[in-house]
Amino acid sequence: MARAWQTTSDPAARFETRAATREAPWVKWTLIAIALSFFALFLLMPLAAVFAEALRKGWAAYFAALVEPDALAAVRLTLIAAGIAVPLNLVFGVAAAWAIAKFEFRGKHFLITLIDLPFSVSPVVAGLVFVLMFGAHGWFGAWLSEHDIKIIFAVPGIVLATVFVTFPFVARELIPLMQAQGREEEEAAIVLGANGWRTFWHVTLPNIRWGLLYGVILCNARAMGEFGAVSVVSGHIRGETNTMPLQVEILYNEYQFAAAFAVASLLALLALATLGVKAWVERHAGRASRTVQDDASS
């Protein structure tokens, strides 16, 4: 009797139905059992534990922890930081992908490596670089304090650190996609008399919309969840410079575990929503856009 999961539309069917590419059932099920146990231990249980711990003291305490003024301030700051960082990196990502995918020039590979750089830098170092530039003892520290501008231990520093760590996401997603699509369609539009903007809006954008959406949601997830870089530049001033992940840390270090996990559960829901959109986008755009580089992000 065929069951729902034994569908032939699953690409794995082509391996399972041929004697040459099939393992004995006991091998198959042993491998699945080991792989899924590992999956449950390292991915499923940490996710479940967030919600279990958040609800340990009941729903009333859960919601009370969420509407607490410092928690709300943290949510607001997280939304502000992501609301600035994501659009900035969206514009940059589209521009970079246009220049790299549609034109030939020297040093292109090197430029792509440089764009990827923030992925290889430890978040702590990412925060440190802005302290070195704008902190009290930094390059611009004296000038900033003369003009009474605060960047470090204030919102601008948090936004800067967030922009840094989310810098490559959109570009990384669009460059391979636009390279694969070539430039014939755009060239045709230009030859037929459309200007550059029109060509972009009506020819390029419809072709890249799924990849763009995917890049933006990954960028947003990282922007809202960044901890290390933001922690260095924040100064941890309650209600002022605490983002949600920092609020989680503070509550946790004060042994307010249920409250810490309550705020953490919001971030976990955001992560689940991100993965949901990602799965949905992948089904719409096909698996073609999935490459190593896409996923080797964050």
Binding site: P11, L36, L218, G225, L267
Partner: peptide, 26 residues
Amino acid sequence: LVRYRFPGKRLVDALVDLPFALPTAV
């Protein structure tokens, strides 16, 4: 994920990316 069919596979495939999406502090 590539070679076998098993129940809940789509969910497992989607959740593999959880560490990319879940904030590190959480």
